[in-house]
Design a protein around this nucleic acid. Structure first.
Lengths: 164, 164
DNA sequence: GAATAATGTTAGGCGTGTAAAACATTTATC
DNA sequence: GATAAATGTTTTACACGCCTAACATTATTC
C-alpha cells in the first residue's frame, strides 16, 4: 500500500518506455496486460512487475498485484507527451529525411527520451513547414540526392532586422 | 599490456562518451589526462579508470596504469564517427531548427548514440541543402514563427503511394 | 631530494534494470 | 468445478555505471 507523496524525480528512459507502452496498448481506456507490455518491450514479465511498482509509486499508473493496469490522469498526460516526442521524431525522419520506416522507428525510440519541449516544438513546426511550403521543399528527395532548382528570388523584405 | 582479442560488442553509450571525450581532448596527438576526461564528463576519476580499462580491452585506447592515454587507430576511427554524429545533430538543431546553443548541445549529447549512419548522412545532407537552397529555407525562422510566402502551388505529382 | 600537491588506482558499495526459476493467481476448458 | 494453461509475482543473482574513501604513483615546489 504505497502511500506517501509520489516521487517527483524525472523518469528514467526505461520507465518512460514502460509508460509509453501502456499508453499505446490502451487506445480506448481498457486496461493493459503485463504480458503485452513485456512482449512489446521485449522484456520478461517479471521486469514489468518491477517497473509497474515504480510507476505506481510515482503516481503514474494504477496498479495493485494481480489487478488491472491503467494510467492515472497524470500518467496519461506524461505518456502522451512521451508519445508525442516519439512521433515528432519518427515523423520527421520518415517524412522529411525520408529514411526507412523501420530505421526511423528504431532511432525515434532511443532519441525520444532526450527531446526537450522546445526541440520537439521546433521539430514539429519545421516538419509542418516542410510539408506546406511547396517550393523550398520537395526539391530535397527522391532517392538519395536532392537539388535546389529554385530561381534566384533572393531577397524579399527582411522582416525587421535591418542591416543596411 | 592487455593482450587477447578485443571485445567486439557494440559500445555502450557511456563508453562512447568516454571515447569521444578523449578524442576531443587530443586535437593533435598528445595524450589525454584522466583528470580532464573526468571533468569533461562530470564523473569521478575512479570512473574514468574503469572506463579506460574497458575501452582498452576493446582495443580502442592505449592504456596502462599510470601511463599516458591515447587512442588506437581503431579507437580514433570510432571516436571520429561518434563525434560526427554529435556534430551532425548539434549543427542541425542550431542552424536549421535554431534552438539555443546550449539546448542543442545537451540534446545532441544524448541522441548521438542512436544516430545510425544512414540517418546521420541524411541529416547532414539535409542541413547542407537547407543552407544552400535560397528560398525554401530562410522563411523558416526569425524568432519563433515562420511563414511560407510561397504561392498556392499545392499538389505536386503524388509520387507513387496513391491513395484514391 | 624532501615535502607537498596533483593525479591515478583500488576496494567496497549503491541504484537501476534485467533475467531465471519457483511460486501464486487468474482464466480457460472440459 | 476440477484441471490445465496463461498470466502475474517473488526471490535471487548479475551486469553496468557511478560513487566514496583510502591508497599509490607521479609531478611540483622549495
Amino acid at each position: 500500500m504505497t502511500r506517501s507523496t509520489p516521487r517527483a524525480e524525472p523518469l528514467s528512459s526505461s520507465l518512460e518506455d514502460y509508460l509509453e507502452a501502456i499508453y499505446r496498448l490502451t487506445p480506448g481506456r481498457t486496461a493493459a496486460r503485463g504480458r503485452d507490455i513485456a512482449e512489446r518491450l521485449r522484456v520478461r514479465r517479471s521486469s514489468v512487475t518491477l517497473a509497474l511498482r515504480s510507476l505506481s509509486a510515482r503516481g503514474l499508473v494504477n496498479y495493485a498485484p494481480y489487478d488491472r493496469i491503467t494510467l492515472t490522469a497524470k500518467g496519461r498526460t506524461a505518456a502522451r507527451d512521451i508519445s508525442r516526442r516519439h512521433e515528432a521524431l519518427r515523423h520527421f525522419f520518415v517524412k522529411v529525411l525520408e529514411v526507412e520506416e523501420q530505421e526511423a522507428e528504431r532511432a525515434a525510440c532511443k532519441m525520444e527520451h532526450a527531446l526537450s519541449p522546445a526541440l520537439r516544438r521546433r521539430l514539429t513546426e519545421f516538419a509542418r513547414f516542410m510539408k506546406r511550403c511547396p517550393l523550398g521543399v520537395p526539391q530535397w528527395v527522391k532517392g538519395r540526392r536532392f537539388h535546389c532548382p529554385a530561381p534566384p528570388v533572393q531577397r524579399r523584405r527582411t522582416g525587421g532586422r535591418g542591416k543596411p
